[in-house]
Design a protein around this nucleic acid. Sequence first.
DNA 1: ATGAAAGCGCTAACAG
DNA 2: CTGTTAGCGCTTTCAT
Lengths: 354, 354
Amino acid sequence: MISGLGLSSMTVKKRVTIRQVAKESEVSTQTVSRVINHHPNVAPETRRRVLQVIDRLGYQPSSIARSLIQGYSGTLGVVGYGLEYFGPSRTLSGVEQQANELGYSLLLSLMRQPEKNDVEQVLRDMFSRYVDGIIWAMPEIGNNRAWIRQGTPQLSVPIVFLSMQPHPNLSVVAVDNRRGGRMATEHLLDQGYQTIGLITGPLDWWEARQRQLGWQDALKEVITEDHLVVEGDWTAESGERGLRQLLEQCPDMDAVFVCNDQMALGVLQAARQMGIRVPEDLALVGFDDTPESAYFYPPLSTVRQDMVELGRCAVRELGCMIEASQQGRAVVESKAILLQPQLVIRESSVRERG
Amino acid sequence: MISGLGLSSMTVKKRVTIRQVAKESEVSTQTVSRVINHHPNVAPETRRRVLQVIDRLGYQPSSIARSLIQGYSGTLGVVGYGLEYFGPSRTLSGVEQQANELGYSLLLSLMRQPEKNDVEQVLRDMFSRYVDGIIWAMPEIGNNRAWIRQGTPQLSVPIVFLSMQPHPNLSVVAVDNRRGGRMATEHLLDQGYQTIGLITGPLDWWEARQRQLGWQDALKEVITEDHLVVEGDWTAESGERGLRQLLEQCPDMDAVFVCNDQMALGVLQAARQMGIRVPEDLALVGFDDTPESAYFYPPLSTVRQDMVELGRCAVRELGCMIEASQQGRAVVESKAILLQPQLVIRESSVRERG
DNA sequence: ATGAAAGCGCTAACAG
DNA sequence: CTGTTAGCGCTTTCAT
């Protein structure tokens, strides 16, 4: 039986190798290698000839073969989560921008269940692909950082963690959520509001807890006023529920710090339905500053965090670590970088001056 | 000066190779290879012993070496754009989900300037990394598809294109934007609205043009009513401007089909500022169905497109093509898949029944 | 300035 | 069931 003949004699494009180029140029593979790597020690005439053949044959060096030899791949592993949300997708965008500028490719891996212990699997896979470093862009949720204590030592690539609790011996880049929470709350106090409620994100998120702490900082309360706090889940719907619950628990509340803009949108809707005017009866500050926030009704005051910059910053850090480790400096001092958020004041929190 | 000594004597982890495992297990590398690849022909006892050594040494097969031999890498290249927008980031999420389920890793490359001709560069790079296939998840803008005519032939990997004009010999997956546009407009007509304006996306986007065509389909107008159309740029701000301009051009307009939800949000704000009631004076239908849309004031009727499914679908397609091409069937019939959008009716387009 | 040899870590193709 | 021999495509010595 003759199989695979006939039509399949179509050009099944074989990869052009350095050897073919060498043969056609009548030089050794070595010289070709020197040409494509821009080594100085090649006669101009030779270089010209080789380049010409490369062009004619459409030769493309194999990154794979290179990686195998050199032990690294010019690739960064990115472990992400929740790409459907505003923050994470901006972050990834920043990561990609900076990686691109630094000449790195990206190997992307998204996690679905934040808790589950696919960690080892993912890390192993990236390692087996010779990534030069890893961006851990998954929020700290529950104790999904537990693996770090055991796992880190055997990891031979630099890692930068995003949005997590700074940790000795770990490189971390995060937004100063606590400060952001405080800024939001202090702003409300400045505006003369008295009783400031809080709708948090899911409290197993580190970032959510930090924002809550900021709120507490501003209120200078030692005792947490439980009836002023409701836990949300980042969705508009939970914001809506949150406001109702909060007002039940504390009818004289006149302002709320809502821990993201999407929940704030839900609050806005609930307020409307309940006949509560914003900001006259109830002031609101959100967190994120999504592109939509300025178009809410009323336009939402919020805390802007530059997630793109967060991603860029992380990659820059990682770049340094990689460079250092490739130059043999095995131990790089790891540091924590806190990016400062920015208060954006719009109508939802500004009381009309009489 | 002694540099890099002292502490840096820390274990600079060498990669564990199959050879070491073989030696320690007292078998050949071949047998180890068989074990890690789950080949049947290994004595249970041998397998046990090898696995044990693997575990003890923490051995991890090198994907890179494998790729070099086999000529493919278990990786899909993804070329994306505009990750900061709702649609694209959902799409990527879908791509990742399905890729993960099919056992592929993702090599991500984002483009910044949709027009610029980095195409060759990106493609070359992916090719040099032995990607098994490519998802071209960049919207068709301007003539950024021009390269296809020249470039495709020398590409030896399957490609699936997202959100572009179906094309003979190309695999394309897209949402039926035209149908969506028609559905939105027909719904407005059904509700008794008479003069239906249009705020489009940037008209160099194929998707934007399709939605416009849908609107025209519904109006059954041969002559395009230019004064009923304004071109936006997907931002809320452009929606705001768009409404003002539209009303100037055509004061008796009583409904608008706005080509994405973000612009619709801008329209909503403009309407409020101008004292126009929605939907009493002006009805609105958007496009996308973002999570926020249901929380706009009033809640926004819109055309939902399932971008996650779009991404998944594309990867499934690509998976088939890859399989086919690896089995030697060089030419795979390429098809176009159109996903159907869905009309979501909320308050912004429903006229109160008297 | 150029080339020859060795080998990165693994698997394919054949032996036994 | 197991081992041997090649060699994927390239770079790294080390010669010349």
